[in-house]
């Protein structure tokens, strides 16, 4: 019951918040890696997506919901767009704005996935969406090369908290 209340409260606050232009930083892989390899007890939920990926777009609200549900826990949601950097102004920023995404969004600007995919997870073959949940203090990690339902995502995250 508490998470539901928290969510309702969270979404109420959200809708009351003035619209603002969410920033989308364009970053390279080493910087991305730094974002979720800090030796803290924060649990990172890192979702790889793209505006052109239908199942990704479908599951994005679940990650937004996680962010509000677990606002009081040490949970950090990071949405990593794999759209081309050339699409930043035309596609990505308008999408983020239109959907009102509040989680941090970065665009990973690396042309060759063969260079970095394996560093995220050896088993990731490159299909989108892909989600990594990691806690560097407890050294726990879970990866999903599939679309996640709200129930699946929440269940996966709960194991970390």
């Amino acid at each position: 019951m508490l998470p539901l209340k928290a969510f309702l409260l969270g979404s109420g606050l959200l809708s009351a918040a003035p619209a603002f232009a969410q920033r989308v930083s364009v970053i390279k892989f080493p910087e991305l890696q730094k974002r979720f390899t800090q030796p803290t007890d924060t649990t990172y939920v890192v979702n790889f997506w793209a505006t052109w990926c239908a199942p990704c777009v479908k599951e994005l609200p679940h990650f937004e919901q996680i962010r509000t549900l677990y606002a009081k826990k040490k949970v950090k949601v990071l949405l990593v767009s794999l759209d081309y950097a050339s699409q930043l102004e035309k596609k990505v920023k308008p999408f983020v704005q239109q959907r009102g995404l509040k989680s941090e969004v970065v665009l990973l600007n690396e042309p060759d996935p063969n260079d970095w995919l394996g560093k995220i997870d050896a088993k990731w073959s490159g299909a989108l969406p892909f989600t990594l949940i990691v806690n560097n203090k407890t050294k726990r990690r879970a990866t999903f090369e599939q679309e996640l339902s709200q129930v699946e995502l929440t269940a996966a995250l709960k194991k970390f908290l």
Partner: peptide, 9 residues
């Protein structure tokens, strides 16, 4: 063997 981004089947 190489990796690439693509749309999930």
């Amino acid at each position: 063997s190489t990796k690439a981004i693509g749309c999930s089947i």
